[in-house]
Design a protein around this nucleic acid. Structure first.
Lengths: 330, 330
DNA sequence: TTGTAAGCGTTATCAC
DNA sequence: GTGATAACGCTTACAA
C-alpha cells in the first residue's frame, strides 16, 4: 500500500490543503487571531497531513532555539547523574531541550563545548567545569554550578560553608573531641572548597582539636591511607570524628577503617558530603551533608531562562541539611 | 571601550570583510576548492570577526541536523547513567549532538519525545522505553536498547540468554545444588526477560533443582522478602545459590539475608546482573553478569548512523561476562 | 576560480 | 480577517 501522504509536510502543504494562505496557517499555529472558520479548516488540514512545525526554520527566523547546553564532566558519578537528571527535567518542563555534553574533565572539551553553543545558537549553557581558564565569549548566557567562572556569571551551589559548619557542629554535639577533616580537591578554586572554611571556623570557635588532611585530585591516593594507618594504635584510631568532603571519599575511608576493625560509628563517627543515595539499598551511604540537587537544578534553570540583573555574578547558595546514614551515633 | 565587532557575524559579514562573495566564503568553510589567495583572505576575515557557522541555517538547507535524541526513563539508576554517558561520548566523537530526554517511565512522555524528534528534524533516536504500545512514525530512524519496538527497528542489548546460562553454570560449578532465580520485571516483553530462559535451560539440562520467584515492577515488594523469610530455618537458607536479574535486586537480597545472619557466600552464593560499579568503593557490588555498556552504546550509535538493511529488525546481542564481586566462592 | 540567485520552512510587516 | 512578500543565514546549481 503506497502512502499518499507526504512524509514531511510543510506549512505550504497545509496552506494548499486548507485553501488558505501561508500567513493564515502561521497565525493559527501561533495562536494569533484568525477567523473561526479558517482556524477549523487549518486545523483539519494539519491533522490530515500530520503536519509538525519545523523548529529549525522557526529558530532561524526568531533567533530562539529553546535549547540549552548541559556541560558536565561525566555521568558516572552519581552526583552528576542526579544533577543532569534534574536539570533535564526542569528544562523539559519549560519546553526547552537539553543538549548534553560530556567533557571527561578535559579542558579542551570544555572549551569546545562553549564554541558549539555559539554555533548552534543555543539559548544558554549550564556548566560544571574544571579547567581553570575557560574563555567564555560574551553573547552567550551561562550559569555555572559549584564554580565561579567569571565576575558576572551567576553560580549556583549548595551552601558549602554552612555544610562544613553543620558537619563540625554535629560531630561535636555527638561527643567527638578530636576531629579530622579530609578532602580531595582539584587545583582550581571552586565553591566546594568553602566546606573546609566552615568546618574550621566551628572547630576554632568551640576550641576543638582538629587536623586537616588535603589531597589534590591529580595526586596518588596512598598518602591519605598511609596517614590513616599511621594513626591507628592498638586497634584504636586517634580521631573520634571525621568529616570527608565527599561521600565517595567517605566510602573509601569507611572501607579502609572497617578492614582494620575500627568500628563506625562506635569508635569513629563520620560525616560525608553530597547526600548520595545507594541505589542498591535505597539509603544514604553514610551520614552526610545533603545537597539539594533538585533545587539546585531548578534554580540554575530559572536563573538562566529569566535573567535578572541582580543575579549577575551572584553566588546562589542553597541550603543543605544533615542526614543520618548510620555512620554517626544517632 | 566600545567593541567595534559585531557580536554575531554572518557569512555576509565575512564576505564583506574579505571583499569576496558569499559563495566563495561558503566554499572555504566547507572545504571546497577555492583559490589560495581567496582562501587566506576569507580565513583572515573569519578570524577577525570571530565568525562561526549558524548550524540552524545550515540544517534548514541541508536537512541534516547532526543531532540525535536519547530517550531514557531516568538517570538515577546507574545503568542508565552509564549508558547515557557512553552514548553521548560516542555521538560527540562523531560530530553529533545528544538531545537528552528523560521520560520518568511515563508512556505519555515517551510518546511525546518521539514527536519532538520529528519537529526538531533530528537525525535519529536511541530509545530505552517501557510503554507497551509506542507509535513510532516512519521517517525517523531509531535504534532501541533492550526492547523490540517494532519488527523493523534494530535493537541492541546484552546477550541476556547467554547471561542467564552463564549465571546458572557458574553457580552450579561452584557447588550449588538448589537454586533460586529472582526477577523483578515490567509487564512488557523486553529482551531482559530472556535471562530467565537461559538460566532455566541450564538448570534443566544439568538436572538441577531450581525455583523461580517473579515480581512485577508495579507490585509491592513484600512478597519476595516474605518468601525469603519463609525459607530460612534455624539460621539456614533453603537455597544455596541465587541469581537475581539485576544488581539492584541482588543488593536488596544481600542486605536482607545479612540482617538475618545468613552469610554470603558461605551459606548462599549470589550472582546479579548488570555489572554496576559502586563509586564509593570502585568495585562491583556483587558477583554479576556484566553488560558491555560502552560497547552497547558504540554499537547503537553505529547502527543508527550507518544504517544497513541487514540490521533492520535485527537484535544485536553483545557478549556478557561473569565477574566475581565477593558474593560467590572465588 | 568566482559570483549570482534561488530556495530551505518559518515569521512578520504590510497592504487589502 | 486575510494574503502577498521580504527576510532569517546558509547551500548549491548555474552562469560568468
Amino acid at each position: 500500500m503506497k502512502r499518499e501522504t507526504n512524509l514531511n509536510p510543510t506549512m505550504k502543504d497545509v496552506a494548499q490543503e486548507s485553501g488558505l494562505s501561508l500567513a493564515t496557517v502561521s497565525k493559527v499555529i501561533n495562536g494569533l487571531p484568525v477567523g473561526k472558520a479558517s482556524r477549523q479548516k487549518v486545523e483539519a488540514a494539519i491533522k490530515k497531513l500530520g503536519y509538525q512545525v519545523n523548529n529549525y526554520a522557526r529558530a532561524l527566523k526568531s533567533n530562539k532555539t529553546y535549547s540549552v547546553a548541559l556541560v558536565l564532566p561525566s555521568l558516572k558519578h552519581p552526583f552528576f547523574a542526579y544533577l543532569t537528571d534534574e536539570l533535564t527535567k526542569s528544562l523539559m518542563s519549560r519546553g526547552y531541550r537539553a543538549i548534553l555534553m560530556i567533557t571527561n574533565y578535559d579542558p579542551d572539551a570544555e572549551q569546545k563545548s562553549f564554541a558549539m553553543v555559539r554555533s548552534n545558537k543555543m539559548d544558554g549553557v549550564i556548566a560544571l567545569t574544571y579547567s581553570p581558564d575557560l574563555e567564555v565569549g560574551d553573547s552567550i548566557s551561562i550559569v555555572t554550578i559549584d564554580r565561579h567562572l567569571d565576575e558576572d556569571i551567576p553560580c549556583v551551589s549548595s551552601d558549602n560553608f554552612r555544610g562544613g559548619e553543620l558537619a563540625a557542629k554535629k560531630l561535636i554535639d555527638l561527643g567527638c573531641r578530636k576531629l579530622l577533616f579530609m578532602r580531595i580537591t582539584s587545583r582550581i578554586q571552586g565553591e566546594p572548597n568553602k566546606r573546609c572554611a566552615g568546618f574550621e571556623s566551628v572547630c576554632q570557635s568551640r576550641n576543638i582539636d582538629y587536623e586537616t588532611l588535603l589531597l589534590m585530585d591529580d595526586e596518588p591516593e596512598e598518602p591519605i591511607f598511609q596517614f590513616l594507618e599511621n594513626h591507628i594504635h592498638d586497634g584504636e584510631f586517634e580521631y573520634d570524628g571525621i568529616f570527608c568532603n565527599s561521600d565517595i571519599l567517605a566510602g573509601q575511608v569507611i572501607r579502609f577503617l572497617s578492614e582494620r576493625n575500627i568500628s563506625i560509628p562506635d569508635q569513629v563517627q563520620l560525616i560525608g558530603y553530597d547526600g548520595i543515595i545507594d541505589r542498591l539499598t535505597d539509603s544514604y551511604v553514610c551520614s552526610t551533608i545533603e545537597q539539594p540537587i533538585a533545587q539546585m537544578a531548578e534554580t540554575a534553570v530559572n536563573i538562566l531562562l529569566n535573567p535578572d540583573e541582580n543575579n549577575a555574578g551572584a553566588n546562589i547558595c542553597l541550603p543543605v541539611r544533615y542526614v543520618s546514614g548510620g555512620t554517626t551515633k544517632e
